[in-house]
């Protein structure tokens, strides 16, 4: 518990540092950043947008401290200002849904890839030299070594364009209303997610599998595993509670990192499959020079990395008594 508390304190401080940096960076620019941005649009920007830009960056009247407090208050109210490219939609309304799509798709597939890869790794080590170890593992490792972009394109080309098994682009059939209670809508969401989901999973499991297999092989030679066998425990119990429980611990750090990249690292998948997530939103923000949107995306990415790390710490504490 003390450990978790210490970590939490650290993450809060880190989050605060990121937020504060976000506040100071525009102020450290030479000149008035808002004027600069405005100039870049060469008069194609609504003058009202400029006011909102100013407000977003906290360039309000009063001393720095007061500006900072205004900025923090806005932030905690979820007020990231108005989008410039889709003026006057509030940034939060653009970020909210895309964050949700990303977390659902990329988060789910990252977790699923970890679980599948880890389980296969356990079996590969347990039946060393068996089918999973000798056939499946090399294939998965080779697939994992291909550039992700390339695999995604192949999947899109074959399953989306040639065989037309799955719809290409977007998260659901755009002719439908978003209604999570509607089974047709749900099935559309699932169909739209299958290609990116499978792409992420097939490229990621090889790495998890190899890591877990190697950890397992190390753990299997430990005396406590041999002793568990000598105790007459079932193979299942020896494999899961004695071997895998210990072998998974070194994988958790890597898992935390990939969870942290769920929000920020999904750019390529979302571009290839035109999935309306954070990566896609970030690209739009950059193309439209939508600074408020960009800034909010970066902040969310930072917080996501911190949150994922904290989640990994919790897992660690749950699985390893030595960390408590």
């Amino acid at each position: 518990m003390r450990f978790l508390f210490r970590r939490l304190t650290f993450y809060i401080v880190a989050a605060f540092a990121a937020i504060t940096l976000n506040f100071f960076i525009p102020r450290m620019m030479v000149g008035d950043p808002v004027q600069l941005m405005f100039a870049q649009f060469q008069g194609r920007l609504d003058p009202r947008a400029m006011e909102s830009l100013k407000e977003t960056f906290g360039f309000v009247q009063g001393p720095l401290l007061q500006q900072y407090i205004t900025y923090l208050t806005n932030l905690f109210q979820g007020n990231f200002g108005l989008s410039v490219s889709s003026f006057p939609v509030p940034v939060i309304e653009l970020i909210g849904p895309s964050l949700a799509w990303t977390v659902r798709l990329i988060g789910f597939s990252t977790i699923l890839a970890f679980i599948i890869g880890t389980i296969l790794g356990v079996f590969a080590a347990w039946r060393r030299g068996g089918g999973i170890d000798n056939i499946f593992l090399p294939i998965a490792s080779v697939v994992g070594a291909f550039p992700f972009f390339w695999i995604a394109m192949v999947v899109l080309y074959l399953f989306g364009l040639v065989w037309k098994w799955f719809p290409i682009g977007h998260a659901y059939d755009v002719s439908m209303q978003v209604d999570w209670g509607n089974p047709t809508f749900l099935s559309s969401v699932v169909q739209h997610s299958l290609m990116p989901l499978c792409t992420i999973i097939i490229t990621a499991i090889g790495g998890w599998m190899l890591g877990m297999r190697n950890n397992m092989i190390g753990v299997l030679s430990q005396d406590y595993v041999t002793m568990a066998q000598a105790k007459g425990l079932s193979d299942r119990r020896v494999m899961l509670v004695y071997a895998a429980r210990n072998a998974i611990l070194p994988s958790l750090t890597g898992f935390a990192m990939s969870l942290g990249f769920v929000v920020g690292g999904a750019l390529v998948v979302e571009l290839v499959f035109a999935y309306p997530g954070m990566g896609y939103t970030l690209l739009r923000a950059v193309q439209g020079r939508d600074y408020p949107l960009m800034q909010a995306v970066f902040l969310v990415i930072t917080l996501a990395v911190l949150a994922a790390n904290f989640a990994a710490d919790i897992m660690y504490v749950l699985l390893d008594p030595r960390a408590r």
């Binding site: 430990q222 005396d223 406590y224 041999t226 002793m227 568990a228 066998q229 000598a230 105790k231 007459g232 425990l233 079932s234 509670v241 004695y242 429980r245 210990n246 699985l319 390893d320 008594p321 030595r322």
Partner: peptide, 26 residues
């Protein structure tokens, strides 16, 4: 047969007690 026989009739104390206990179980 081996699983049933082990520990009930014959048990073993390993050379290194440090490594004979599973670190994640009480």
């Amino acid at each position: 047969e081996l699983r049933a026989f082990r520990w009930e009739h014959l048990s073993i104390v390993f050379q290194s007690a440090m490594n004979a206990l599973n670190p994640v179980l009480s």
